[in-house]
Design a protein around this nucleic acid. Structure first.
Lengths: 122, 122
DNA sequence: CATATTGTACTATATATATAGTACAAATAT
DNA sequence: ATATTTGTACTATATATATAGTACAATATG
């Protein structure tokens, strides 16, 4: 289970921070297919936010087929495998990398800084 | 001069992203004391945001004694040294990389995919 | 069966953010 | 002097975010 944390300083909306952490949790293997997430009410209490804020995050991820929600039971990590072509994948990767390196550059970081950090993360 | 960039997807307010980039620019030596920033109108056009949004960022930084504004002339980097610790710099890089990789992961890319693409870009 | 739990769906309200438009004061340029 | 540029200061409006409160439907539990 993820140790959810909200940071008001970033300016990023709470519901988006929740979304991010779930996605990252799945990506890094901390959250696995079929695993149950905290209930909307439990996570709301835990993070000291409103029930609606958690529900919004879960709803958004359900629309993206990342989560599967069952009324009366709970919300679970889905089993999403999206089929896309190699070219589409590569274009997307380029797009993401371009966007993020330009952001990192605007903060004065170099490509090497990014690469070093990414290697530490894995 | 900084190459300002705004990212709507992060959820961080534009004015705060501008503040952040100026502070980092000073901290990393890209912006030096006495240097003139773009006029509020010029930067607003450049970033495709409202004049008020840039003005808000500049105003905030003037209150913090980071910038000095002179009506009719322009806005300049003040002489107060911004101390950004290595830890703060590293945290920012981590934050960017986390956001970066979580998005890339949600598209099915691995850290190696990202690193390879970044190295191609260089 | 009845009850509790869980996700869902509303309304209402408050605050923050961003835009649009306008206007003015101070400094500069012509 | 006059006009332009620049920062500043408003009003008004729209949207996004978050909270509070309430209620309901589907499922699980006793």
């Amino acid at each position: 289970m993820i140790d959810f944390k909200l940071d008001p300083k970033t300016g990023a909306p709470f519901y988006r921070q929740i979304i991010d952490q779930i996605k990252f949790g799945i990506a890094t293997g901390k959250l696995k297919t079929g695993e149950q997430l905290p209930t909307v009410r439990a996570l709301a209490v835990d993070l000291k936010v409103n029930l609606n804020t958690v529900a919004k995050a879960y709803r958004e991820l359900e629309i993206q087929n990342v989560l599967e929600a069952q009324q009366g039971t709970g919300t679970f990590i889905g089993n999403t495998e999206i089929q896309i072509t190699e070219k589409e994948k590569n274009d997307k990767l380029k797009e993401i990398c371009n966007e993020f390196s330009s952001i990192a550059f605007s903060y004065g970081f170099s490509t090497d800084d990014i690469i070093n950090q990414l290697q530490k993360q894995q």
